[in-house]
């Protein structure tokens, strides 16, 4: 996990844009993200076959998957389905969960972080002690156990990931709120008689927002990886919904004879995660007040 530096609200948005566009890697990441989003959105048009259709001639007589050829461009999976179509539809799952789960984690984390920072006393202490506990809880085991309780579906998987990922967000927000509340403009506003809740809303939220933007983008990368991992362990989205991690999981036992079944979805996960990381990193640099 890449920790974002605290960043301050930019006065001049155009300057941020300029900086973003100057960052070659970030730009590259952004383009790839857009391409993947388009691929996912237009999957029904682009996919050569129905991703769920198990072709009777999609397997050898002994039941082995077919390697890439003219008909199945990326080969078939262990049920004789077209891998390319499954990857394209799988992009929808990965990106949807990436966005939804991450948004939910941000929401929960920001809310609890703000609350803890605002009510510094008992409530704040309780919230932060709870985040301490959740920080120490092995995240993957937590996700696996939660998936066992809540029957996995797309939205439940998103929820599970959010329940695991909110913790760090809460801590970052909490730290920012604490730092900011000692800042001059907050104390002076308080001295001027403004109510604390109002101050929070008016001053703190806009200041926390850029950090969240960076965190949100980087977090999508983590989320996509976690979703794939859960699917790989068999506790992710339910089959036959195509999921990149799920494809690898299903193919694991045939890996040595059909390596393409791991290589292609693995590559898809890698490219997606890298792209969001590049964009997030570029955003952070662009929003960093210490930057050029």
């Amino acid at each position: 996990m890449i920790q974002p530096h605290p960043v301050r609200a930019p006065r001049a948005l155009p300057r941020v844009w300029r900086r973003l566009l100057r960052n070659g890697l970030g730009l590259f990441g952004g383009v790839v993200v857009i391409v993947f989003v388009l691929l996912a959105a237009f999957a029904p048009l682009l996919a050569p076959y129905d991703p769920a259709e198990q072709f009777f001639d999609g397997l050898t007589l002994e039941g082995s998957p077919l390697p890439p050829d003219g008909r199945f461009l990326l080969g078939t999976d262990l049920l004789g389905r077209d891998l390319l179509s499954r990857l394209l539809y799988g992009a929808r799952i990965s990106l949807t969960i990436g966005l939804v789960a991450n948004a939910a984690a941000l929401l929960i984390g920001t809310l609890l972080g703000l609350l803890a920072g605002y009510f510094k006393g008992v409530v704040g202490g309780a919230i932060m002690r709870f985040t301490d506990v959740m920080m120490a809880f092995p995240a993957l085991l937590l996700a696996i156990a939660l998936s066992a309780i809540l029957r996995p579906s797309l939205w439940i998987v998103a929820l599970v990931i959010a329940l695991v990922n909110w913790v760090q967000v809460a801590r970052v927000v909490y730290a920012q709120v604490l730092a900011l509340s000692e800042n001059d403009f907050v104390t002076s506003a308080q001295a001027l008689g403004a109510r604390r809740g109002r101050i929070l809303f008016k001053h703190l939220v806009p200041h926390v927002l850029p950090t969240m933007l960076v965190y949100g983008t980087l977090g999508i990368s983590t989320t996509v990886l976690l979703e794939a991992t859960l699917s790989f362990l068999g506790v992710g989205v339910q089959p036959p919904t195509p999921s990149w991690g799920g494809i690898i999981s299903e193919s694991q036992s045939f890996f040595f004879t059909a390596p393409w079944l791991v290589a292609f979805p693995g590559l898809a996960i890698l490219i997606t995660a890298v792209s969001f990381n590049l964009v997030g990193d570029a955003l952070r640099d662009a929003l960093d007040p210490r930057g050029r």
């Binding site: 198990q54 262990l78 089959p239 299903e250």
Partner: peptide
């Protein structure tokens, strides 16, 4: 959820 059971179920 262990191979090959999800495949057979599909």
């Amino acid at each position: 959820n262990t191979d090959p059971n999800p495949r057979i179920a599909q």
